[in-house]
Simulated scan of single mutants.
Amino acid sequence: MTVQKPPVKEEGLTEENTSRPNRFLLFWEYSKKDLMSVVYTILAVGLFLSIWELLGYYNVLKEPQFFRPSVIFAQTWVLTKSGEIFIHIFSSLARLLISFSLAAIFGLLIGLLMGRYKAVKAFFDPLVTFFIPIPGIAWAPLIFVWVGVEPLFSRWGLIDSTSWWWKFGLGNPVLIIIGTIAGIFPVIQNINMAVRTADKKLIWAAQTMGASNNYIFRKVLLPNSLPFLFTGFKLGLARSWRTIIATEFLSAAMEGLGYFIFFNRTLETRLTRINIYVGIFVLSVVFYVIELGLKYLERITIEKYGMVRKGGESL
C-alpha cells in the first residue's frame, strides 16, 4: 500500500510574497509601543490634573499662587485662537533646530574621531570632561560679555525689525551659541563611548578585506553607534531646549517661550500669572512631541540597520 504525501506548496516569487507591505500596517507596527506610551502618559497626567482641579475647586490650592487646570486650559485656548502663543513656539523651536543641528553635526564628527584615533581622544577627552558638568545657562553671562545682549546682527545693521530673521527671534546668535554648547557634549561623550566599545572583530574583518577608513566609518562604526547616538541626541536635545528657554529670560529676545514666561512674571496681574502656567504647560507639551518623534526615528533607524528585530527585540 502506497502512502501519498500531501501536496507541498512551493515557495517562490509569487504575487503574495513579493507585494510591497501595506504602509499603514507598517506604520502601525512601528507605532504600537509609542501609542501605548502616549496612552499611559495621558492617564497619568489626567489623574494628576484631576487631583489638582479638585484641590483648587475646594480651595485647598488657592489663587493667585495656584490656578485650576480648567482656568489654564481656557487661557491656552484664547492664546491659541489669537495666534500669539505660536509666535513664541516657532521662535524657540527655530533656535532649537539650528543650535541642536550644529551640536549634532560637530558632536558626531568629534565623537567618531575620538573613538577612532587615540591622539584625537587624548586632546578632546580632558576638554569634554572639564566642560560637560557646566550647566548651559552658566555660559550665558560670558557669551553676553563677548557678544552683547543687544541683537548682534541688528547692531551691525545687517537686519532690522521687519526681517523674517527678526520675526523668528534669530537676530541674536547668542541663544544659538549657548544652545549649541549645551547640547554638543552629551553627543560627543556617547559617540566616543559607542566607537570605543564597538566590536573590534568587525573592524579587523573590514580592514582585512581592504576597506578604507571612510568605508569603516560609514558601514561599521556608524551603524554600531546608533543606540549610543540616539541616547546622546536625546540628552543633548533636552539640554539645548532647557538652556534656550532659560537664556530667553535673560536676553533681549522679544519672542520665545522663555521670554513669554518671564515677561508675564514682571506684570503681576491675575491674567499674566495664568500666562506663566500656560507657558510652562506649552513648553512641556512641545518637547514631549519632539521626544516622541525622536523615539520613532530611533526605532525605525535601528531596525533598518539590523540592531534590533521588528517589534523592538534586541538581537
Rank of each mutant, 00 (worst) to 15 (best):
T129I: 04
F66M: 09
A182E: 11
G157A: 02
P135N: 15
V147P: 08
I191L: 09
I105M: 06
T197P: 02
F106S: 09
L102F: 13
W28M: 08
L97V: 08
L229N: 06
V282D: 06
W52M: 02
G311S: 13
I137A: 04
R116K: 14
E291W: 01
E15W: 07
S91T: 12
P126Q: 07
I143V: 15
R242M: 11
L55A: 14
K62E: 12
F27L: 14
E15Y: 03
E303F: 00
F168I: 06
L49A: 01
E303S: 08
F233C: 03
S19Q: 15
P126S: 08
A103M: 09
N190I: 00
L229Q: 10
S212F: 09
V289C: 05
S161H: 08
S212W: 11
M114W: 05
W204G: 03
F67L: 12
N264M: 00
K5L: 14
V147N: 05
V8I: 11
L229H: 05
L315M: 07
F263C: 02
T208M: 13
I137W: 09
F123P: 07
E29D: 13
G210Q: 00
F249Y: 14
M254D: 12
L61K: 07
I42C: 09
P69V: 06
V38H: 01
R218G: 07
R273G: 12
P21H: 09
A103Y: 08
I274A: 03
I261M: 11
A74G: 00
Y296I: 10
I132H: 07
A138S: 13
A138T: 10
L235R: 03
S92I: 01
K234D: 10
G169P: 03
E29R: 15
V147K: 01
P133C: 01
F281R: 01
S240Q: 05
P69K: 14
R20E: 13
T301P: 02
T269P: 04
